[in-house]
Structures are given as C-alpha cells and as structure tokens.
Amino acid sequence: VKKMAKAIMADPNKADEVYKKWADKGYTLTQMSNFLKSKTAGKYDRVYNGYVIHLD
C-alpha cells in the first residue's frame, strides 16, 4: 500500500487507478489509515483524503 501511495504522490494522475484497486480489494478507511501511518505526520494525508473522496 505504501508503495502505491508513494506512486500517487509522485504522479497524482495514477490516483484513480490505485484507489479503484484498493476499493476492489475491500480496503476500509481504517485499514488505509493504519497502513499509511508514518513517523512523518501528515505525509500521506493527501492520499488518504483522496481515497475518502473516491469511496464517497
């Protein structure tokens, strides 16, 4: 998940494709939050927020 999150950060155009894969795998927002937690607070906030919007 972190590898794909980094791919989104490097190229935001990949976001919809990645979010669809995550949704197809049934990842919940709680799971995504836990996967994307980082020592650098807020590092993956943009990715998480994008997934929230995708699921909505």
Rank of each mutant, 00 (worst) to 15 (best):
M4G: 09
M9E: 03
N34P: 00
A5V: 04
Y48I: 14
Y27L: 07
K37S: 11
D24T: 10
A23D: 05
E17T: 10
L29D: 04
V1E: 03
A15S: 11
V52S: 09
W22C: 00
K37Y: 11
K21M: 15
Y48P: 00
V1L: 07
T40C: 10
D16L: 13
K25D: 10
V18M: 08
L55P: 00
A15H: 04
E17G: 10
D45L: 08
H54R: 04
Q31Y: 04
G26S: 04
V52A: 14
V18H: 03
L36Q: 01
A10D: 14
I53Y: 09
L55H: 01
H54I: 06
T40K: 11
S33M: 13
S38H: 08
Y48H: 03
G42H: 10
T30Y: 12
V1M: 06
N13D: 11
N49W: 15
Y19N: 00
N13V: 08
K3H: 10
I8S: 02
K39W: 08
M9Q: 05
Y44G: 04
K25A: 15
G42K: 06
A5P: 04
T28E: 03
E17S: 10
K39E: 14
T40L: 08
K39F: 09
V1C: 10
T30W: 11
Y48W: 07
T40I: 11
A7D: 11
I8N: 03
K39D: 14
K20N: 08
K20F: 06
D16C: 11
A10M: 13
A23R: 10
L55R: 02
N34A: 12
L36I: 02
K14C: 13
F35E: 04
D11R: 04
E17R: 08
D16E: 13
K21A: 15
L29Y: 05
D11C: 11
D45E: 10
K25S: 14
N34C: 12
V52H: 07
G42D: 07
T40H: 14
T30G: 11
A7I: 13
K43D: 06
F35G: 02
T28M: 03
S33Q: 13
A5Y: 03
T28N: 07
Y44P: 00
E17V: 09
K2M: 08
M4Q: 15
D16I: 12
Y27D: 00
D45G: 05
E17P: 04
G50S: 04
R46E: 15
K3S: 11
D16N: 12
D56T: 15
Y51I: 03
V52Y: 06
V52Q: 11
R46C: 13
G50W: 04
N49K: 11
Y27I: 10
